[in-house]
Amino acid sequence: MAIHRRSSCRLLAGVLLAGCLGAGNAHAAGKHAPRPESTAPAPAQPALVFDIAPLPVTTGQLVQYILTPAGQVSGMLLADGTQVMCLHELGENLPAIVHAGEQVSVHGLKGVNLPIVRAYAVSGPRGMRIADVRPATGNVPFDSPSIGPDVPVDGTVLAPLYGIQGKVVGVIMKDHSVVYVGDANAVRLAAWLKPGASLHAIGTGVTGERGTAINAREIGPDVNQAIHIEPADAPPPGAFPGSAGYDVIPGSSQAE
């Protein structure tokens, strides 16, 4: 009886000791094991109306988001120099699926002679995809700050910045800043906007974690040669609010 009782006690003690060692090892492994990278959930979107499968696919490494002067994402710059253009909803969802330095795939229309792509769907490296499902009712205008703090940009031009119509509308700088001047100013100031040129610009815009983007009001090779230009978001010329001609509609009998 005594022998049987001692054997049972020894067996129970061994089981308890093994359990404690196993729990300790599991705790240590959990303490030192790498934590899975947290990823934002893919944005919920309506089902596609059109089949985008036949569209050309452009792949590359994301260098930076292209921002509007209000801080909205309007596209991406890839490592090979391709500029991907997105409408509002698609652009604002890009940071949820791809970050700078990661590979991205884009279903979209390629420029004929320019390094541009009009994106209709974008796939990130973690299997998430977003698509342009908005009805084709024309471009949704981005908010653009006509007033606000001045943001200076100084550095070297990396590449021309293209608009959705393929016209040059500004520049992307080597420090990733984006300077908008509008297509009319871009033609007039083409010599200052060439890749490799030194550029100084100041205007209203944003600067932060996503990057810097401004509507230039002053621009030049340096601060001493800067000239004043009409910002890209300047309202069309006309009578100022409150004046006698402000409420007159051009072409009406009042305007004659």
Rank of each mutant, 00 (worst) to 15 (best):
Y120A: 12
G127Q: 10
L161E: 08
R129A: 15
V133H: 12
V106A: 01
D143G: 09
L90G: 06
V117R: 01
G148Q: 09
A96D: 14
S123E: 15
P125L: 06
F142G: 02
Q103Y: 05
R129C: 15
T137P: 00
V106Q: 03
V117K: 03
G166S: 08
D150K: 06
P149E: 08
K110M: 05
G111H: 10
L109S: 10
V112Y: 07
N113A: 07
K110A: 04
A131M: 10
L161H: 02
R129I: 15
T82F: 15
K110Q: 14
V168N: 08
E102K: 00
L114T: 14
V98I: 15
L78F: 10
D143V: 09
Q165N: 14
H107L: 11
T82M: 14
L158V: 09
Q165S: 13
E92V: 07
R134K: 13
V157D: 00
S146R: 09
R118V: 09
D143S: 02
G148R: 02
C86M: 14
A79T: 08
V140K: 02
P141S: 07
P135Y: 08
V122Q: 05
R118C: 03
V98T: 07
P115K: 00
P125H: 11
N93T: 09
V153A: 03
V157R: 05
V157G: 01
D132R: 11
E102G: 01
V84H: 01
G101M: 08
I97S: 08
L109Q: 12
P145S: 12
I97A: 04
H99F: 12
V151Q: 11
V117W: 07
L109P: 01
P135G: 04
A119H: 04
G138E: 01
V84A: 01
I116D: 00
D132V: 09
K167S: 15
K167P: 02
V168C: 03
V104Q: 01
G81L: 02
A96K: 11
A119I: 08
L109N: 05
A79Y: 06
S105W: 00
P149C: 01
T156V: 15
D154N: 10
E89V: 11
C86A: 12
M128Q: 15
S123M: 08
P135W: 11
I116K: 00
A100W: 11
E92A: 06
D132K: 13
A136M: 10
P141K: 04
K167H: 14
Y120L: 06
V168M: 10
G155M: 12
D80E: 04
K167F: 14
G163P: 05
M128D: 13
P149R: 10
A79C: 04
A121T: 11
A121N: 03
R126Q: 04
V84M: 11
F142S: 11
R126D: 03
V133R: 05
V104W: 03
E92K: 00
Q165C: 12
D150E: 15
G138V: 07
N93P: 08
R134W: 14
G148N: 05
N139E: 15
V117L: 07
Q83K: 03
V153E: 00
I97G: 07
T137C: 12
G163R: 02
Y120K: 13
V168D: 06
P160R: 04
L109Y: 13
A121S: 11
P145K: 12
Y162I: 03
P145A: 14
M128S: 02
E89H: 07
T82E: 03
G127R: 06
A96C: 07
D154Q: 12
V153Q: 10
S123L: 13
G166R: 14
